[in-house]
Design a protein around this nucleic acid. Structure first.
Lengths: 118, 118
DNA sequence: CATAATACCGAAAAATTTTTCGGTATATGA
DNA sequence: TCATATACCGAAAAATTTTTCGGTATTATG
């Protein structure tokens, strides 16, 4: 059998449920990349998030498909081609992603000063 | 020297900055507990989140103090007493916590059906 | 006097996530 | 032919987080 997510979504409390869907390192960024609604090929996602190891993006995209946040289409072509699109469920998370993005922008300097290297 | 956070806050992108402040397992729940604004003693926090190992709550509270989301007061008494209060910066994250809480409530059934045991 | 409660910390174990590496297969372009 | 690009996967290593365990010290309670 294929790759298996170790810890499934957290059903103990609504807050942790939401967190568990997006808390891994790159999922929120992936949602942000897919926000526009146009499909992206995996290689595009990799290029947009070059700091992430490609393997993690694969795994996280797969989990997001399983969770229903993203839909995947595989085209039976060679060389292989596939595409990911954000689903309605995924889109419903975008206000949260937006709020986090804005919060980060608004409070960046505080943490720059505090933790910034230079 | 005391406990040191391994990975500090993520300054690479605003979205990851925000995430890095709240993504560890219990931080969002701690913020939710402190939302009211009244101070809580560590033992109270432990009692409110009994699923979390007390040690993690200590560590995460400490990090949240360092990050400025929570303020700590130590009373030089015996037996020891200390209190945590949410700061203005911490409060500014509450709309995000709220949004996640609401999203979790609204979409709970989907994931119950999908991943629920019974 | 023994026990529990208070707050906290270090060290180590366990669990989980992330990264790296190598491999599958086919097509295109130099 | 050789390198590159495509998409994907498994296994193992590395990094990180979470948990468990034991210990400090003092007061109050039975």
């Amino acid at each position: 059998m294929a790759y298996e997510k170790k810890i499934p979504v957290d059903l103990d409390c609504p807050l942790r449920l939401t967190m568990s869907l997006i808390e891994s390192k790159w999922k929120s960024c992936i949602l942000d990349e897919l926000r526009g609604g146009s499909p992206m090929r995996p290689s595009e996602v990799h290029r947009c998030l070059p700091e992430a190891a490609p393997r993690v993006l694969d795994i996280q995209l797969k989990e997001m498909v399983e969770d229903g946040l993203v839909a995947k289409t595989i085209y039976p072509e060679l060389p292989p081609r596939s595409e990911y699109v954000i689903t309605e469920l995924g889109k419903s998370l975008l206000p949260i992603i937006d709020a986090m993005l804005r919060w980060g922008e608004e409070h960046f300097e505080i943490f720059e000063r505090k933790y910034g290297s230079k």
